[in-house]
């Protein structure tokens, strides 16, 4: 295991940021920690990096207990949220820094740094200062600086958070390619569920300092374990235990994804409250006997575009598409 975390807790005074956390991450995995702000995901990352020491519990990296090691005594490197580039150094000097403190000779470290910068497509900017770069370029410098020292694990703390949408999508693909090329473990912290779904092999969903569920993107989307996961990842129609009992004869809270709802000739009748055209799909907000449902139909289905506000439609909720929630 690249990372084993056992019984990890962290309190700041009265506030419990992380509570009794257990995670295992395999070598070479792209592992995301997803959750709203304040859910404890960044605190876990900081404890893996060594910036925070846990209140209790254990962090093991490749079998070595590093729980109380300083950051410079761990084989992990971090890409910071706001990049944390050294403003008084050029791009090249920034990337060389980790090699310099390891006493690598000038010639070798320049060659390695230039190679790392080439990998992130920044060869033309080596002499600039960080202040002269755009956000996306700074992001790449931070990446190059972290990977040049060949860490076994790379920690990324919301690295794309400050970039605009188009650039973020581009960087997502580059990150994924980089991870495949380097073959090292990436631990990726984000609050953006799309980003987590796009990039990750596995995702841990955080809420209030605890992990709600760990799974592949598909598992989390198709079989969320809790209401929180169902709501946080994708859109969900959630029925309370009472509603489930009356509608499906199930005594637990249940959920169905919008695209699993069939609109056609079968099932109870509902009223379209809103019809939203999204390009590839059409989203309908339907009132079904006082229950608000979100359904999503493919826009290639020509019928879908004919459902306007006020239209009566038959809603078919198949029991096999329901997911029981804890």
């Amino acid at each position: 295991m690249a990372i084993s975390i056992r019984g990890l807790s962290k309190s700041f005074g009265e506030f419990v940021a992380v509570e009794n956390l257990n995670v295992e991450v395999a070598a070479g995995e792209f592992f995301s920690m997803l959750g709203p702000s304040g859910s404890g995901k960044t605190t876990v990352l900081r404890m893996i990096a060594g910036f925070e020491l846990p209140t209790s519990g254990q962090v093991t990296l490749f079998g070595e207990d590093v729980t109380n090691n300083a950051p410079f005594d761990r084989e992990v490197n971090t890409v910071f949220q706001d990049y944390a580039l050294f403003p008084h150094m050029s791009v090249l000097e920034n990337v060389e820094y980790g090699l310099r403190v390891r006493k690598v000779s000038k010639k070798v470290r320049t060659a390695l740094a230039l190679a790392a910068l080439a990998k992130v497509h920044l060869s033309d900017f080596v002499d600039r200062k960080p202040a002269q770069l755009s956000g996306g370029q700074r992001q790449r410098v931070a990446l190059a600086r972290a990977i040049v020292v060949k860490p076994k694990i790379l920690l990324l703390d919301e690295p794309l958070g400050a970039l605009d949408l188009k650039l973020r999508e581009k960087m997502q693909i580059e990150l994924k390619e980089l991870q495949r090329e380097l073959g090292i473990t990436f631990i990726f912290v984000t609050h953006d569920q799309d980003e987590a779904l796009t990039l990750s092999d596995r995702i841990a969903v955080f809420n209030n300092g605890k992990i709600e569920q760990i799974g592949t993107p598909q598992e989390l989307y198709e079989t969320p374990a809790t209401e929180f996961v169902a709501r946080f990842i994708g859109t969900a129609n959630i029925f309370s235990a009472d509603e489930s009992l009356s509608m499906f004869g199930l005594g637990t809270k249940t959920m169905i994804r919008p695209e699993k709802i069939e609109i056609g000739n079968e099932g109870p009748e509902g009223t379209v409250m809103e019809s939203i055209y999204l390009g590839s799909s059409v989203r309908l907000i339907i009132d079904l006997n006082g229950i608000r449902l979100v359904a999503e139909l493919s826009a290639s289905d020509n019928l879908a575009k004919t459902y306007h506000r006020g239209a009566k439609v038959n809603v078919n909720l198949s029991k096999s598409d329901l997911v029981e929630l804890k």
Binding site: A49, F51, P71, F72, N77, A84, L85, R145, A146, V149
Partner: peptide, 15 residues
Amino acid sequence: VPGNLLEASSDLGAK
């Protein structure tokens, strides 16, 4: 001097 520069330096192996 932002605190995260000190963290970044330590992260990159500097004592």
